[in-house]
């Protein structure tokens, strides 16, 4: 089963037509589950990105995503999106997991991931046994305020070895988290240098890679093509495309 661990849908408001187009697009690649983090009405270029959402905005985005999850319970899994800069973030995690049945926590650029304000959220994720999808980018063009880098993730992972962190967008930074067995890497970037998946596997092992697309910001083809086009054995591709994430979630399907 192919699971895309890292997607976004426009919400506030969401459009059933758009969701169904994305699901049709996923069908064409055999993607059965989309793990969605709702970043609100501006979740990809060139729309305006909301880097530091308020607690109320996060709650609203998650509630909207829950409406989508109810419409497509077999296809859409939700990440609870939070901004640790606000004291309600832990409550939002509770609501996401307990009321909405979400699979984990999504953190973007509200704070850096090794900011102490994030620690109560991490401890809540540990309590529920759910993973964290953590945005990162190691770039040479500068950073958004509070944008985490790979070594911030490594810092968090060392402090909390019990938490499972999916480090987003950052396959090139594989060596920075190699020593952290609780850090997994998604493939959600439009950087598609031939060999990058194989090199990541060489460094951290196939069990720590998961398929993510960053759809709707990125084309499914641009990310799943990296895995399908890799020189890995088919069994390894299956692990990256879905089995590894089921194991992270502790689910059979």
């Amino acid at each position: 089963m192919i699971i895309d661990v890292h997607t976004h849908l426009l919400t506030n408001p969401f459009s059933v037509k758009e969701v169904e187009e994305v699901l049709d697009g996923a069908d064409r690649f055999g993607i059965k589950k989309l793990c969605v983090a709702s970043l609100g009405p501006g979740c990809y270029y060139p729309t305006k990105l909301i880097h530091e959402p308020t607690q109320e905005q996060c709650a609203s985005f998650n509630a909207d995503l829950f409406e989508i999850m109810k419409l497509y319970p077999d296809r859409i899994w939700g990440w609870a999106y939070i901004n640790p800069a606000y004291p309600g973030a832990v409550d939002e995690v509770k609501r996401g997991i307990e009321e909405y049945g979400m699979i984990g926590v999504k953190m973007w650029t509200g704070t850096k991931c090794n900011d102490p304000r994030f620690f109560p959220v991490v401890e809540e994720a540990i309590k529920y046994g759910v993973p964290i999808l953590q945005h990162t980018w190691d770039k040479v063009t500068g950073y958004f305020p509070n944008e985490s880098r790979s070594f911030d993730v490594a810092d968090l992972a060392e402090k909390y070895p019990e938490v499972k962190i999916v480090m987003a967008h950052n396959e090139r930074a594989v060596l920075k988290v190699k020593h952290c067995p609780n850090v997994f890497m998604d493939t959600a970037s439009p950087i598609a240098e031939l060999g990058m998946i194989e090199k990541a596997v060489d460094h951290i092992g196939v069990d720590r890679l998961v398929f993510g697309s960053d759809c709707i910001g990125v084309d499914f083809a641009s990310t799943i093509g990296k895995i399908i086009g890799s020189d890995l054995p088919e069994d390894d591709k299956s692990k990256i495309l879905g089995e590894n994430f089921l194991r992270i979630l502790g689910r059979d399907q």
């Binding site: 697009g25 690649f29 240098e193 031939l194 084309d219 083809a221 641009s222 093509g225 990296k226 399908i228």
Partner: peptide, 13 residues
Amino acid sequence: YWYPECTTLKLET
């Protein structure tokens, strides 16, 4: 330089 499948899959799907 790039995985060619990232482009071919755009057309094939």
